[in-house]
Design a protein around this nucleic acid. Structure first.
Lengths: 210, 210
DNA sequence: ATCCATATAATACGAACGTATGAATTTCTC
DNA sequence: GAGAAATTCATACGTTCGTATTATATGGAT
């Protein structure tokens, strides 16, 4: 019997492997996700990874690149929004939060990359440099206007990233322990606001006299 | 030829294995640290892990327990210090920061445990419950006095933990990128203050009218 | 209809893994 | 010092890993 789609669709196997690899790399890490598990999960043959991507490492790089490309556009747009430096940093953090919420695999992949101790793939290194430069420039501008506290701009900028990441890494335990669900839009908005408030408070110049 | 120490000291092998396991589990994770690598690193025989600990998993549990026991005492002492709830939370954060700085393996082990996706060993689960209960009770007390902002106490309490952890996870890249060294006591104090300020700012009740 | 590039499939290989086994050695006890 | 207990050691077993190899099947251009 022949189903509606007549052609096997050449890139279908590669696409399903990429999807399965995103899932399993995020969940079990690079070493923990075997090619056998990935191909089984994708309904493909064992040799399909070698054939379509060349090697396991090349597949991993493809996964990272596929996750980072859309994020970069969104973050750049957020950073270019009009407003004070602190507002623009806020917009970046909100963008990251929303993107993590929509794609829980991404925070897990970031976690796995950090935990692995391996050097990050080149596209990831480029993305980190880009993001760090962008944020520390905003911090520097904010400091110039007296709106952001003193301190190393890069250091302050990097401190902006963890909160949104952590919230989504802890999403499972958090939902268990607190009965909250990120799927609920009100809860999600409240968590996002919490993260943003924390970041702004951490960056804002002191409002009280010493 | 016989060297000064006549006896091989029975628990010496177990101790050196535990030390090597701390190092390698922290650096490469549970799966990435093979028994062969651990025993080689410890100068012991391949069978020594099975003999002294029973299994790889039992060794891992021993590593976790050995790292958590001293931390618990320090944190409890910090939380029992006199002062406002916010001050006592600050003391806990400072304690965590210092402990991470003194033992960089611990933050790495925590990272690896989170990344692994495996259920945490029982002593770790107990420690997390203990710490979460302790901190959220302090948050609740601070809210009652109007010193800490509104919100779910457990959620606010958990938000206190990441900053100190992240600083030490990023220690390597941070030292490269910024030329800072945690070994330098002035730098370390400044980073600690930065973390503490951020946490306090994130917890403190708003000082401005809506 | 035929050919050829593309894709899928089945299987094999060497390496590394955790663990088990049994012998050799050392340490402790009497 | 002899015997028992504890420890170290070398080696083997069965799995699983990433990759390579070889064969089969498929789809479109001529």
């Amino acid at each position: 019997m022949n189903f509606s789609v007549t052609a096997p669709d050449p890139p279908r196997t590669a696409a399903s492997i990429l999807d399965a690899a995103q899932e399993l790399f995020a969940e079990r890490g690079y070493d923990g996700a075997s090619i056998r598990a990935i191909t089984r999960h994708a309904g493909a043959n064992l040799g399909a990874v070698t054939y379509h991507f060349g090697s396991k490492e090349a597949l991993y790089h493809a996964v990272i690149a596929s996750k980072l490309a859309p994020l970069r556009e969104l973050v750049d747009a957020a950073a270019d929004r009009p407003g004070s430096p602190l507002d623009r940093i806020t917009a970046v953090v909100e963008t990251l939060f929303d993107h993590y919420a929509d794609d829980p695999r991404l925070p897990r992949l970031i976690l796995q990359q950090i935990a692995s101790g391996r050097p990050a793939p080149p596209p990831a290194r480029a993305w980190i440099r880009h993001l760090a430069g962008l944020l520390s420039e905003l911090v520097r501008a904010g400091q110039e206007k007296g709106a952001i506290r003193h301190g190393n701009p890069l250091f302050l900028a990097l401190g902006v990233l963890p909160p949104a990441l952590f919230v989504h890494l802890m999403r499972g335990p958090l939902e268990e322990g607190l009965g909250l669900s990120v799927a609920d839009s009100a809860t999600r908005a409240s968590m996002r606001q919490h993260v943003v408030d924390g970041v702004r408070a951490a960056l804002a110049a002191d409002r009280e006299a010493p």
